[in-house]
Write a protein that binds this DNA or RNA. Sequence first.
RNA 1: GCGGAAGUGGCGGAACUGGCAGACGCGCCGGAUUUAGGAUCCGGUGGGGUGACCCGUGGGGGUUCGAGUCCCCCCUUUCGCACCA
Length: 828
Amino acid sequence: MKRPPFHPVVEQKWQDRWEREHAFRTPDLPDGPRYYCLEMLPYPSGRIHMGHVRNYSIGDVVARFHRRRGSAVMHPIGWDALGLPAENAALANEVHPAEWTKDNIAHMRRQLRRLGLSYDWDREFATCDPEYYRWNQWFFLRMRERGLVYRASRAVNWCPGCETVLANEQVEAGGCWRCESEVESRELPQWFFRITKYADELLDAMEGMTGWPRKVLLLQRNWIGKSEGAEVRFRIPALGDDGEIPVFTTRVDTIHGATALVLAPGHPASARIAEEDGEVRDYIARALAAASAAPGAPAGKTGVRAGVAAVNPFTGEDIPVFVADYVLMDYGTGAVMCVPAHDDRDHEFAVRYDIPIRQVVIPNDPASAAGDGAFTDYGTVVDSGDFSGLPTEEAKEAMARHAAEGGFGGPRTEWRFHDWGVSRQRYWGTPIPMVHCGDCGVVPVPDEDLPVELPRDVEITGKGGAALAKCDAWMRVDCPACGVRARRETDTMDTFVDSSWYFYRYLDPENAEAPFDPERARAWFPIDLYIGGVEHAILHLIYCRFWTRVMRDLGLCDHDEPVVRQLSQGMVIKDGAKMSKSKGNVVDPDAAIEEHGADAIRLYVLFEAPPEKEMDWTDARLQGPARFLKRLERVIPAAASWLPETPLPDEEDVFRGPDLGLRRKTHQTIRRVTHDLGERIHPNTAIAAIMELWNAVLARLPDAGSRSARRAVREAVETVLSLLNPMAPHLTEELWERLGRETPLLDFPWPECDEELAREETVLIVVQVNGKLRGRLQASRGLDRDELVALARENRGVARHLDGLTVSRVVTVPDRLVNFVARKPARG
RNA sequence: GCGGAAGUGGCGGAACUGGCAGACGCGCCGGAUUUAGGAUCCGGUGGGGUGACCCGUGGGGGUUCGAGUCCCCCCUUUCGCACCA
C-alpha cells in the first residue's frame, strides 16, 4: 500500500510557522557575532530554474549553519528587476514592463518560499522600485561632483530598420534580432564612470583577497590588463605639427629593430595622410567598412605603405609608415613601432609587405635561437648603440629613461580596462538624472527632485529611437539652473549599476534619507560569503568592488572590499548540456518539489557534487537522498515505544563496545560536518558523513535494548537531525518535534564535538614492506617506535614478506604506519 | 595562438599538510518479503587469478622508505582572452 507522501504536509507546516513568526528576521544592528551570507539576486524572468535552486540551497545551508552557531545572520533576497527582457516581453505580449515584472516576482517569490529558504523577507526589495533607483541617481550625482562621471562619444550598434540602438546581445550575426537589417556602428554621446581611476587599487587589492577563487581573480586580472612599458614619440615630418606620433610598447629595448611605423586605420594621422594619398584613402575606407560589418571579428592583417617616412627618435633613422588593420585604435595610442625580429605580428606583416627584419636582441641561451619566426623572449640587446650588451630588463629601463630625458617619451602604463559606459538607450532602467538646457548645457537634477521616475504611460515599440524620447510630457522640464524650458536626458543606466550596491540597501531598505545608514554598514560589512555563478566573475564582481571604494570615499563605509569570501558555484546541466527550452531538457523546480519535496531536492543538489563544480541533473540519482530521508522518517515509528522517552547520555552512564563505538562515531561526525560546512563549504561530504552515522544507527537499532544502547542511539539520532537541519530543514524539525523536543532546531545550538569521546583509543597501524601494504594492526594510541616495530614484526603477513630479507631501515609514523625497507642479502 | 582548470570503478564523487585508493550515493548482481513493484530489507560489487598473489588514480619519466597527491614531458577535455603592441 502506498502511504501518502510525508513531505507536503510537513513542509507546509514549517514554512507557515516560519512565516508567521518571522523566524528569519534579522536585527538591524547585531549585538555579538554576525555573519552576512549573500547570494546573487535573481532577475525576475518568470520562473526560477535549477541554477537558482542550487545557488540558494548552498547559501541557505551556510546561513542556517551560522545561525545555529550563534551568529546574527543577514540573509536577504531581492530582485534585479530592471533590464531588457521586460521590454522584450512588453513587445511580445503587450504587457507593461512593470506589470510583467511584478507578476514574475510574485510567482518566483512563491517558488522560493516553497524551498524553505531562510530569508529575511522583511528586507526584500526590487531594483525597479523608484525608492531604490533614486539612490542610483543620487550616487550618479555624487560621483559627478567628484569627477567620476563624464560624457563622451562612443560607437553603439545602430539598427537602421528600427532606428534604434541595440544591445550587443540583440545583434545576431551582424544583423538586427528583430528586422535583420545590417547593424551599423554609430557614434553617440554617452555617460561614463571613471572606473579606471581605481584600476591600480582594484588590481593591487587582489593580493589580499584570499577568500576568492583563484580563477575569479585571474579573470579580473586579465580583464584589467595592466601593461607596463614605454611611450616613444616618432615624428612624421611631412605632417608638420600633427606629425608627432606617440607609440606604446612593452619592448622599448627592441626599438633599434623598428623598421616601420604602423598606424591604425582610425588614427588621426592616417586620415591626414589620406588627404594626399588616394591609395591610403581607399585602404582606410575598406578597412573601416570591414570592421563595422563584422565588429570584433579578427581582421586580415592587411595594410598599405604610405608615401611618407617617420623618424625613429632613438636612431634618427627614416623608416616607412604603414596603415594596417592589425593595429587597434582603442588600445594604447593606435600606433605601433613595427619590430619584425621580435614580435610575431610584426613579423608576419613584415614578411608580407617586404619590411626589413633587423635583429637587436639575442637569446642568452643560444640553443633557443633556432626557428625563422620572431624571437620574442628576453635576452641581450645588440646593435643598439650605447645600450648594446644590456639584458632586456635593464635595457627597457635605461631606454625609457633615455626617452624621457630626450623629451620624446618615457615610462607609460596601459590598461585593457576602459571606463564604464553606463548609458543605455532603453526604457526599463534608471533614468540618468540630468537635464539638457539650451542655455546652461547639461545640468544635474537637484537632490530634492529625486527620484526622476520613469513615466508609466510609455509606448514600447522597439523602434524609432529611445522610448523615453517619445514621452513628451516626461521630457519637458524646467532647467534647474535657469528655469527655462529644457529637456530630460533620455538615456537610462546600465543595470549593472543596480547590482553594484544592492547588498548595502538590504541593511536599510526603508531609508528615505540616505541609501543606507553607515552605522549598519560598519556593523555588517564586509560580506562573509557571496555566492553566485562564474559568469559574473568579471563585470559584476569588479563593478561592485569599484562601487564600494566610491562609497568609502564618500564616507558611507570604511572598508575597501565588500566581500571576504566568494564562491562561484558550478552550473546545473542535464544530459551533458546546459538546460534550455530549445533543447527541451529543463527540469522544472515546481514539479520536482511537488513530487519529492523541497528537502529531497535541496539534499540532492547539495549532495551530488561540490558547490564549485558543474552538476549534472539526473532524475535517477535523486533517489539516493530521497531514500535517505524516507529511512529517517521511519525510525521514529520503529522505536516509538522508547526513543522519545530515552534521555541523552549523562555522566553516570558507562558505555562500552558498540555503544561506545556509536557515541564515538557521533562525535566524530559532529567534528567533520562542522568543518565541512563552516570551513570548507562542502555540503556534499557533510551529507555523506551524516549518512554514515545514520547507517551506524540503523546497525545498532535492532538490539538496542539496554539503557546505554538506547541512550547512545538517542544521542546519535538527535545528532543526525541536528546536523542535517541546515540541508533538510523541514523534515528534521518535524522529527525533532516528534522526539519530544520543544525548542525547534532553528533555535537550538549547533552540537559540540566532545574531543575526548571522538578520539579513538586504539588506532589502525598500516604496515608496509618496501612501500607495499602487507598488514594492518590495531594498536593502542601513543606507542613509541620500538613497540610499534615489534608489533609490526609479529604480524603474519608482514613476517612472511620479511622472511629471507635484511631490513636496512624502518620508517615509522606515530599512530599510523610502519614501513620496513628490506633487501635480499647479498649472497656469500 | 596565449593563459587557467581538470582527467580516480559502469556513473556522480571521497581521500586534511605525501602514509589503508574508491567514503557516501546511483547503478548492477544475488537473496528475503510481496498478487505486483520504479516499495522495503539483507549480502555482494575496481580488474585479473580465484589460495593468504598480481595489477590499478589519462600516458611516459623523475624525486621519495612511500606518490591520486610533489617535479618534468606528452595526450585529452574544458573554461577564459583572442592581433592588447
